[in-house]
Design a binder for these strands. Structure first.
Length: 143
DNA sequence: GCCAACGTTGGC
DNA sequence: GCCAACGTTGGC
């Protein structure tokens, strides 16, 4: 568990008809609470996030594509949508839109074959490696 | 709408 | 602690 090694990278999944990129953008610099995570692995990833960490915003089900970059603005704390102390949420704000990078596109990239997105499709909060991050940013036109 | 993969629950 | 049954997620 590397600590203090600078910004780390993540991927957050949301169904766009529940909460999509436009909703995240509309939340502005204050951002929005990333709530509703009820999976231990995902929760542990939330807990590992630090201020300033960046995450891809992924549209699951509808779209199946990475559509933007968000930044962590509040550390993990009690999820406001439950009293159950096991569940945490962070806050994130929209940082930059991406030209959509589709799941199919990722599958076609040899350098992305080990992405969690391709190998554990059900995990809704995932780590992303620095090299994966850079490649997807390049594909998405975010330089 | 279907189904595979995965996580959780609960009986033993 | 094992494992069968069940529920959920998410790609197709």
């Amino acid at each position: 568990m590397e600590k203090g090694g600078g910004v780390r990278y993540w991927l957050l999944k949301s169904e766009p008809d529940e909460f999509g990129w436009p909703d995240q953008v509309a939340a502005g610099d204050v951002g929005a609470e990333w709530h509703g995570i009820r999976n231990y692995q995902a929760r542990n990833n939330l807990r590992a996030m630090e201020l300033g960490d960046r995450a891809f915003f992924y549209h699951s089900n509808i779209g199946k594509e990475i559509v933007g970059v968000v930044e962590v603005t509040r550390l993990a704390a009690q999820d406001s949508t439950t009293d159950d102390a096991r569940w945490l949420s962070v806050w994130v704000r929209a940082l930059h839109p991406l030209r959509a990078v589709t799941l199919a596109q990722c599958k076609g990239e040899p350098a992305l074959q080990n992405m969690v997105l391709l190998n554990n499709s059900r995990l809704s909060v995932q780590p992303v490696t620095a090299s994966e991050w850079q490649l997807i940013c390049a594909l998405g036109g975010f330089v």
